[in-house]
Simulated scan of single mutants.
Amino acid sequence: MLNEVESSAATPRPPLIGTPRLRCAGSRAKRMLDIVLSAVLLIVFLPLMLVIGLAVALSSTGPVVFRQTRVGLGERPFTMLKFRTMHHNTSVGLVDLLQADGHQLALRTKPRHDPRITAAGRFLRKGSLDELPQLVNVLRGDMSLVGPRPCEHVEHTTLSPEDRVKRVSVKPGMTGLWQVSGRSTITAEKAIQLDLRYVDDWRLRLDLLILLRTLPAVLRTRHAW
Rank of each mutant, 00 (worst) to 15 (best):
Thr79Phe: 02
Thr79Ala: 09
Thr79Gln: 12
Thr79Asn: 12
Met80Gly: 01
Met80Lys: 03
Met80Glu: 00
Met80Arg: 00
Met80Phe: 04
Leu81Val: 08
Leu81Cys: 02
Leu81Tyr: 14
Leu81Ala: 01
Lys82His: 07
Lys82Met: 03
Lys82Trp: 05
Lys82Arg: 10
Lys82Gly: 05
Phe83Gly: 04
Arg84Pro: 03
Arg84Gly: 06
Arg84Cys: 02
Arg84Asp: 06
Thr85His: 07
Thr85Asn: 07
Thr85Pro: 06
Thr85Tyr: 05
Met86Gln: 09
Met86Phe: 05
Met86Asn: 06
His87Tyr: 15
His87Arg: 15
His87Gln: 12
His87Leu: 12
His87Trp: 02
His87Phe: 11
His88Phe: 15
His88Arg: 05
Asn89Gln: 15
Asn89His: 14
Asn89Arg: 15
Asn89Trp: 02
Thr90Asp: 12
Thr90Ala: 15
Thr90Arg: 03
Thr90Leu: 02
Thr90His: 14
Thr90Ile: 00
Ser91Lys: 14
Ser91Asp: 15
Ser91Glu: 12
Ser91Val: 11
Ser91Arg: 15
Ser91Gln: 13
Val92Glu: 07
Val92Cys: 09
Val92Gly: 01
Gly93Trp: 04
Gly93Ala: 07
Gly93Pro: 00
Gly93Phe: 01
Leu94Ala: 14
Leu94Asn: 05
Leu94His: 08
Leu94Phe: 00
Leu94Pro: 02
Asp96Arg: 13
Asp96Ser: 15
Asp96Gly: 09
Leu97Val: 07
Leu97Met: 14
Leu97Arg: 06
Leu97Gln: 13
Leu98Gln: 12
Leu98Asp: 06
Leu98Ile: 08
Gln99Ser: 10
Gln99Gly: 11
Gln99Asn: 14
Gln99Tyr: 01
Ala100Asp: 10
Ala100Thr: 10
Ala100Cys: 00
Ala100Leu: 04
Ala100Phe: 02
Asp101Gly: 11
Gly102Pro: 07
Gly102Glu: 04
His103Arg: 08
His103Tyr: 14
His103Asn: 12
His103Met: 04
Gln104Val: 13
Gln104Phe: 00
Gln104Ser: 10
Leu105Gln: 10
Leu105Asn: 03
Ala106Arg: 13
Ala106His: 14
Ala106Met: 09
Leu107Ser: 12
Leu107Trp: 10
Leu107Gly: 09
Leu107Ala: 13
Arg108Asn: 11
Arg108Gln: 15
Arg108Gly: 13
Arg108Cys: 14
Thr109Gly: 10
Lys110Met: 04
Lys110Val: 03
Lys110Leu: 07
Pro111Trp: 04
Pro111Met: 05
Arg112Ile: 06
His113Gly: 00
His113Ala: 12
His113Ser: 11
Asp114Val: 01
Asp114Cys: 03
Asp114Met: 04
Pro115Thr: 02
Pro115Ala: 00
Pro115Glu: 06
Pro115Trp: 03
Ile117Ser: 00
Ile117Met: 09
Ile117Pro: 01
Thr118Phe: 08
Thr118His: 03
Thr118Gly: 02
Thr118Arg: 01
Thr118Cys: 05
Ala119Val: 08
Ala119Asn: 11
Ala119Arg: 15
Ala119Glu: 01
Ala120Ile: 14
Ala120Met: 14
Gly121Gln: 05
Arg122Leu: 00
Arg122Met: 07
Arg122Tyr: 02
